[in-house]
């Protein structure tokens, strides 16, 4: 530590006479002005924080908080978590939800990948198909539900009419208000989202890399699998996580196309909340599902971070 200074630093520099204000006044004016500017900037961000905080953060915190409180007494309790995680029905429904979501996601990604690749490389095709991909995303899910009904209804649905008419089926297939109907509906939205997202992913992989491989003797197919696909993996993982979580937490389609057996967990949660007067149980189950969704997304993010920028990204 340096020894104490011999004389204290002057507070006011000895300015020549006739200069008016002292040095320190002017410097503090500057400091105050800069502070006011910073405050003004922070103020501009307050409305955004306020709205999000009050409309989103607070209710969510309350939801989590209440999931740990007994509905009647208000005491801290893990009963709802216990009741859910120990309940065979809940677990089975969760399992079917995850199973359907996983299956549909995989199918959608695999089916959409080649199309996404083609759209990424062929501008003309992309311009033609882009409206077909975009417009379904600008519609509420209900419209898709209507379409499913029109398609799969037992007697009036297109599929049944065609198959019965052709004699392939003797009796109408009752798939609409059962898990196949929901799965097919999810496949539709899943393919729409997958195509849109994966096209972006494919476009971000530099086509010149593939061209270089082809120029060195590889077939286009081989180059795709060896060069483009590995570079697109992070984006594909992200798309998978996105579609998976959206199916797990989907509400509209399961309710519209529901049969006797609930396959999707959102039905359980909403039943607890709206019909069975068990809101806290519903909250706990919502938290469980959220953890699943967040876990999957977080894993995808981690994966992206770890294997993301491997070069070739434009």
């Amino acid at each position: 530590m340096a020894p104490a200074r011999e004389r204290p630093a002057p507070i006011v520099d000895p300015a020549p006479k006739g200069r008016g204000r002292a040095l320190s006044d002017d410097t503090s004016i500057l400091k105050r002005r800069l502070l006011r500017e910073r405050l003004f900037y922070r103020l501009c961000t307050v409305p955004a924080l306020l709205v999000t905080g009050l409309v989103a953060v607070v209710p969510l915190l309350l939801l989590v908080f209440n999931s740990f409180r007994n509905q009647a007494s208000g005491a801290f309790s893990l009963e709802y978590y216990g009741a859910s995680l120990g309940n065979a029905f809940f677990l089975r429904t969760l399992a079917t939800t995850i199973g359907i979501a996983l299956g549909v996601t995989v199918i959608c990604i695999i089916l959409a990948l080649p199309l996404a690749y083609l759209l990424a490389r062929r501008t003309l095709l992309r311009n033609v198909i882009m409206p077909v991909i975009t417009i379904p995303r600008m519609l509420p899910f209900v419209v898709i539900g209507y379409a499913m009904i029109l398609l799969l209804a037992p007697t009036t649905g297109v599929v049944n009419k065609v198959l019965l008419g052709l004699g392939i089926l003797q009796q109408p297939a009752f798939i609409l208000f059962d898990w196949p109907g929901q799965a097919i509906a999810f496949c539709y939205t899943g393919i729409v989202v997958a195509t849109a997202v994966l096209t972006g992913v494919m476009m971000s992989v530099d086509p010149q890399l593939e061209d270089a491989a082809v120029s060195m003797g590889a077939t286009r197919l081989r180059a795709f699998f060896v060069i483009t696909l590995p570079l697109a993996i992070p984006g594909i993982v992200a798309a998978t996580a996105l579609i998976f979580t959206s199916i797990v937490t989907a509400y509209a389609i399961p309710v519209m196309l529901n049969g006797r057996v609930p396959y999707m967990i959102s039905l359980l949660i909403s039943a607890n909340l709206l019909t069975l007067q068990q809101p806290h149980l519903a909250y706990a189950q919502a938290v469980i599902v959220s953890c699943l969704a967040i876990g999957v997304t977080a894993f995808a993010q981690w994966f992206l971070l770890r294997y993301g920028q491997r070069g070739g990204a434009r």
Partner: peptide
């Protein structure tokens, strides 16, 4: 946050 959860909250 999934819209379902947000809606419930």
């Amino acid at each position: 946050v999934p819209q379902l959860i947000m809606g419930i909250a």
